[in-house]
Amino acid sequence: MIQGVWSIYKRELRFFFQSASTYVVLGLLFLICGTIFHQVTFEFVNDSAMAQAGGPFGTADKAPNINVAVIEQIFRLISAMILFIVPILTMRLIASERSGGMFEVLVTCPIDDWSIILGKYLALVTVGCVIVALCSIYPIGLWVVGRDQGAVPDLGIVLSACAGLLLIFAAYGAFGLMASAATQSQVTAAIVTLVGLMMWAAISEFHMPNAAIQRVTDELSAAHHTENFITGFVSLRDLSFYFIASFACLFVSARVLEARRWKV
């Protein structure tokens, strides 16, 4: 089992890092994030300066907080961007094996379905780790520059936000893997993933007729749970939400692979 997972994992990771689309996606992500980061940091510096100067437009107690004004902004943006990145990264995972004829070879080799799913998923999560690690350039940059001015981001909030990003990437990724397992075409997989993720993230945005239902949709929404992590609030409830969601998607994926063995 472990050996099978490891073989699949290595191969999949190689595919990720030799595929041009991975680099295009990462390039776009950091292009957009870099621009927005510049924007919010600039505003933050302006607001701080105004607050310090005092006068009619600002007072000292209105001084902006770097965690709220920059860190939260930028991580919220990245968490939204992940929604668009994940379909591109996951669409290939299993759909390409099916369309290329590799699927038949894989499943007739002595390797079980779970090893295939887990190997691919772990490779995807590794890519997620790389993305999150690269994102830490923003808080590190703030820390390097702001150290002397005493305006440094809170380490706890940064770590919790990074964990939140990784968790939402993992949950979205599991959903994408499921969609890829269920389809032959990569394009279909990507579209299904994108639409599915949008609905999953935005379900709390719809106005529900009563508060109880609203509460349920809030809890079901993927984006809702990230919000806590980004503001530095780590709870077991949010953690378990992501773990359960990811596991459920992986479970369905394994069932989908297995479905060809069902007698119908």
Partner: peptide, 10 residues
Amino acid sequence: PESAPVDLAS
């Protein structure tokens, strides 16, 4: 298999 398994990127 019928369609020769190809792992084009390897």
